[in-house]
Simulated scan of single mutants.
Amino acid sequence: MKHIAIIGECMIELNGKPFGPMQQTFGGDTLNAAVYLCRGRTANQDPANIQVSYVTALGSDPLSQGMISRWQQEGLDTELVLRDEHRSPGLYLIQLDDQGERTFLYWRHQSAARYLMQHPDIDGIKAALSHVDMVFLSGITLAILPEQDRMDLLNLLAKLRQQGVEIAFDSNFRPALWPDDHHVTVKTIYEAMYRLTDLALVTFDDEQQLWGDNTPTHTLNRLKTLGVKHCVVKTGADGCLVEAHGLPAQTVATTPVEQVVDTTSAGDSFNGGFLSAYLAGYDLVEACQRGNKLAGTVIQHRGAIIDNIYTQAALIS
C-alpha cells in the first residue's frame, strides 16, 4: 500500500451570482485533488492500494463536521485533521462568466487552516508524516500561512525528504494571497520549495506569470536546474509536457473539449487523476493521460467537485 498525505485548506464554497441563485458546497485546491485521487483508486479496481490522508485544521462547528463526514464518504482518511475550537473554515464565492472562466472572493484570513502549524497537536501530525510515502501540497498551502509558520513547514518537508518521503508540489500561484512585493517573496519561497520537490505538477500560465518563462520547455528546464526529479508542466487545452529523471521530455496531448462550463478545478482534478495512477505504479505518461482525461471531464460540469458518476465514467472508460 502507498500512503499519501495531502496538506492544505478546504473552504465553504458558494457558486453562483451574488443575490441570485447560489449553490453551497466545499472546495480547496488540494482537497479537490484528494477527492479525485480517492475516486481514482476505484478506477484502479484496488481501492486499498492507496491510503489518502488529508492534513488541515477545521473548527468544531456544524459546517466543519459536515465537511469531514463528506470527506469520509469519499474514502478520505481524516485522522490527520485537527480541530480548532476558536476558529472555523474559510469561505469563498465563485462567479463565472459566459465562457466558464471564474473570479473569486475570499474570506479566509482567520480560518482554522491558516493556523495549522500553531495548533497544540501539530507535533503528532509531524510524527505521523514521517511514516507516509508521499506528501503533496500547493503554493496555496504555503501562501495562507503566516511567515514563520511557512518556514516551519518548509523545514518539516526538508526533514521528511531526508527520511525518504517523496515530496510533490503544485505551485498554483495566486498573487492575491501574497504581499505587495510578492514577486520577491514568492520566488524565494518557491525556489526553496522546488529544491525539496521530487515531483512537480505545475501550470505553465502560473509559472510564466511569476518567472517570465517563454515556453513550457523553459519552465521544465528551470525546474530541473533546481533539482526536481520528475516534472509535469500543465498547458491547458494542449495537455502537458512531462519529463522523468533521465528521460527526454514528452508532450501528452488531451482530447479537445467542445463546451467548457467551469474551469474551477481543472488543475486540481488533473493532479488527483495523475496521482491516483502514479501511486498505483503507472508510468508518468500514463499518469498524465489519466490526469488529462479527468480534467477534460471536470471542466464540462459546474463546481470544483463533480458528481462521482461522471468521474468514474472518465477514469474507467
Rank of each mutant, 00 (worst) to 15 (best):
K2F: 05
K2Q: 14
K2W: 03
E9H: 00
M11P: 00
M11H: 08
E13D: 06
L14V: 04
G16N: 09
P18L: 15
G20H: 04
G20M: 03
M22H: 10
T25Y: 10
F26D: 00
G27E: 00
A33S: 13
A33G: 07
R39S: 08
G40T: 11
R41F: 08
R41E: 02
A43L: 08
N44F: 12
N44Q: 15
D46I: 10
N49G: 15
T56A: 09
L58H: 09
D61G: 04
G66P: 05
M67D: 06
R70C: 12
Q72S: 08
E74R: 10
L76W: 07
L80D: 08
V81S: 05
L82Q: 12
D84Y: 07
E85M: 12
P89W: 05
G90C: 06
G90S: 04
G90A: 03
L91R: 14
Y92S: 08
L96A: 06
Q99F: 12
T103D: 09
F104Q: 10
Y106Q: 07
W107K: 14
R108L: 10
Y115S: 01
Q118I: 02
P120A: 06
D121L: 13
I122S: 10
G124F: 03
I125Q: 12
A127V: 07
A127R: 15
S130V: 00
S130A: 14
S130C: 11
F136E: 00
L137E: 02
L137Y: 14
S138V: 00
G139I: 00
T141I: 00
L142G: 01
L145Q: 13
L145K: 04
P146M: 03
R150C: 05
L154D: 07
N155L: 09
N155I: 04
A158W: 01
L160N: 03
Q163R: 13
D170N: 05
F173L: 10
R174S: 04
R174I: 02
R174K: 09
R174P: 02
D181A: 06
D181I: 06
V186W: 03
V186H: 08
I189S: 07
E191N: 13
E191S: 10
Y194S: 08
L196H: 05
L199C: 06
L201F: 01
D205T: 12
E207P: 00
L210G: 09
G212T: 02
G212K: 05
G212V: 00
N214K: 15
P216N: 04
T217Y: 13
T217L: 14
H218W: 08
L220V: 09
N221H: 14
G227S: 06
V228W: 01
H230I: 06
C231H: 04
V232N: 02
V233S: 11
K234T: 12
G236P: 11
D238I: 05
L241K: 07
V242I: 08
H245S: 14
G246F: 01
L247S: 13
P248A: 03
A249T: 00
A249I: 06
T251Y: 13
V252S: 03
P256D: 04
P256T: 10
V257K: 09
E258N: 15
Q259K: 15
D262N: 09
T264R: 03
T264F: 02
A266V: 05
G267F: 02
D268N: 05
G272C: 04
Q289G: 03
G291W: 11
N292A: 04
H301S: 11
G303L: 11
G303R: 11
I306R: 13
D307K: 15
D307Y: 07
N308A: 15
I309R: 15
T311H: 12
S317F: 08
